[in-house]
Amino acid sequence: MPPAPAPPAAVPPASARPATAAIELRGLTKDFPVGLRGVKLRAVDNLTLDVPAGQVFGLLGPNGSGKSTTIKVILGLLEPTLGTCRVFGVPSGQVASRRNVGYLPESPYFYRYLSGEELVRFYARVCGVPRARLAARVGEVIEWVGLTGAAGRRVGTYSKGMLQRIGLAQALVHDPRLIILDEPTAGVDPVGSAEISAMILRLKAEGKTVLITSHLLAQIEDVCDRIAILDRGRLILAGTVAELVGRRDRQALLVETLPEAELAELRAWLAARGRTLEAVEQPRTRLDQLFLREIARSEGQREGRS
């Protein structure tokens, strides 16, 4: 069965596309046989999508929407049933397509019996980091993820947040152009989550392409340039975060709290011009921001005392 035409929103117009997309999916379909009779379960259904180079791209969707399957196809771990997948122009089935890719899986458990440094060194050597640069590069990425103090400890003793960081270090050690993060903040506390967000933004500033899946939509909104939403394996929405979330026909004005009389005057002023004051709300600090601020304040006080 030939794939149906792709939704137009998934692929930017040719004039707007960079010379080489980091990831190109064309009519990607993936079926899994289920049970003894081999009934097919369609995990990804005719997905056409471009991930532009140098951007942070969020792949969103509920559980079972096909995000992880899509990632596995991109990584060459699964063969597409139909359609194609290219990474920097190289078909994802080829080993060469993974030369420029770093991957952090969801809830990773690495070799427990290695120390953090041994682990990163192992992945660096697997990726062919030259011996002359090995020690420096391993030290660099471990420092980059903030694990220098724990690099000599066995990975089996690491906390969830530390595992995510060492996972990020192994993903970055060969300086890949594309980094794929599958639920990087799953099970991580808000502080760790904020640190991972900051790392993603640093990667973007360094010109890397980042593909991220997460259920923390606030985090996605904060760090992503573009997003795509999948449901039951189908692409239902794609575009830039600004396009999809912003409302161009509305504005919010932030002023000091007005007395009721002045508010009434404002309503009358707007009414005289044919406008309506639709909502008056007390702005709220986001809970994650409040949490981070208070934790930082508490730690600051503790350090001040000691």
């Binding site: 771990l77 993974r98 809830s107 990773p108 690495f110 992945y123």
Partner: peptide
């Protein structure tokens, strides 16, 4: 089972 194979096979490894 621990998915470390994923991280390894996601590298340029045959």
């Amino acid at each position: 089972e621990s998915r470390t194979a994923l991280t390894l096979l996601a590298k340029p490894v045959w």
